Simulated assay, not measured.
Amino acid sequence: MPILDLNPALRGEPAHTLVLFHHAGGSSRGFAPLLPHLPADWRVWGVDLPGRLLDRGTARCRTAAEAVDYLRTTLGPALSGPFSVFGHSLGALLAFEVARRLESERRGPCWLGVSGSRAPQRLGAVPSPSRPARDLLSQVHGLGGWPGDHDDRHALARLVARTLSADLNLVDDYAYTPGTPLRTALSVFGGKDDPLAPAAALGEWSALASGPVPCHTWPGGHFYLYEHAEAVCARLVASCRSQTTRG
């Protein structure tokens, strides 16, 4: 299914819905370290881009615009009640664009969290992140951590490499289009030592919102959020609840 239920133990109506968008080369299941630290009465959804790893029956998105259309079309009919969106790396760019699309349809989220990404309007003003991203993410998806024999690991590595390459092509294809500042509350998350989204540059997201944009950083690199899952989730939950309480 395109929408993954990451809190299947939930019974009854959710107090809130949180939608998670994965990083390049990953999937929604990669958010597993965060799940124990999210409220038990929340519905938590992950939306994977098509064509991931063994999902060869679905065509991959060829452009960033196709990815945004896919995510919007997948989510649209399912959303009801208050919801928030959080994306990491590539997922942050896509979450921002999906939030803009939903706002234009008067269905915007309560809160948008973006993590591990430069501000969209700045991507064209700095060297493309795809080369260092390919190197960094290839290390994260190294062979040593996978089960199976040598041939199995190499076969899986090839699948991951193809998925990662296709996802990073979306980053290269992405072009920011100026528009109305977000009305949705926006928060920025990052690692203090992230080479792909330097902490000093995260404040540039503030130009895209109509209200204040708090910026939260933790020690670590691009995947800081998994090293500080409890603290990151505490900040995420507090941010969501502050907006739903106001509403």
Rank of each mutant, 00 (worst) to 15 (best):
A99E: 02
A99G: 04
R100S: 13
L102K: 08
S104A: 14
S104Y: 03
S104M: 07
E105S: 15
R106C: 15
V114Y: 08
V114G: 13
G116Q: 08
R118S: 09
P120R: 01
Q121L: 02
P127T: 14
S128D: 13
S128Q: 05
R131V: 08
D135C: 07
L137C: 03
Q139R: 14
Q139W: 05
V140G: 01
W146Y: 15
W146C: 07
P147K: 05
D151T: 10
D152K: 05
H154A: 13
L156K: 04
A157M: 05
R158Q: 15
V160F: 11
T163Q: 09
T163S: 09
L164A: 04
L168C: 04
A175T: 14
P178Y: 04
P178V: 02
G179L: 12
R183P: 08
A185M: 04
V188G: 07
V188I: 11
V188Q: 13
G190P: 08
G190C: 09
K192T: 13
K192L: 12
D193E: 10
D193T: 11
D193S: 13
P195N: 03
A197F: 01
A197Q: 00
P198W: 00
A199V: 14
A199D: 08
A200H: 05
E204Y: 01
W205S: 04
W205V: 01
S206E: 11
A207I: 07
A207M: 04
L208H: 11
A209T: 06
A209P: 12
A209L: 12
G211Q: 10
P212H: 05
P212M: 01
V213G: 02
V213L: 04
V213I: 10
P214R: 08
P214A: 10
C215G: 01
W218R: 09
W218G: 15
P219Y: 01
